[in-house]
Amino acid sequence: MTHTKLDVRGEICPYPMMRTVSALKKLPGDETTLEVITDHPPALETIPTQAARLGFRTDIEETATSEWRLTITRNEAEAEG
């Protein structure tokens, strides 16, 4: 399974969220997961909401000081239902 990655470290508000949303919209149908690296704390609230609206769920993991990996996965069951 391929895995698309997006590094939005250093970005100003609200681009971490906006670039994640546009990457999710462009995510090929056969891919289920987008991995986002961010150092922008407000994105930890805005990305899960926007991802949920597009039918994805978000798992957040802190990888370094003020740096997080967001694993955004397509919600297959909901997409089919």
Binding site: R9, G10, E11, I12, D39, H40, P41, T65, S66
Partner: peptide
């Protein structure tokens, strides 16, 4: 632990 020098790349 939220201080970090953040430099935009673009």
């Amino acid at each position: 632990g939220e201080f970090k020098v953040r430099l935009p790349k673009r």
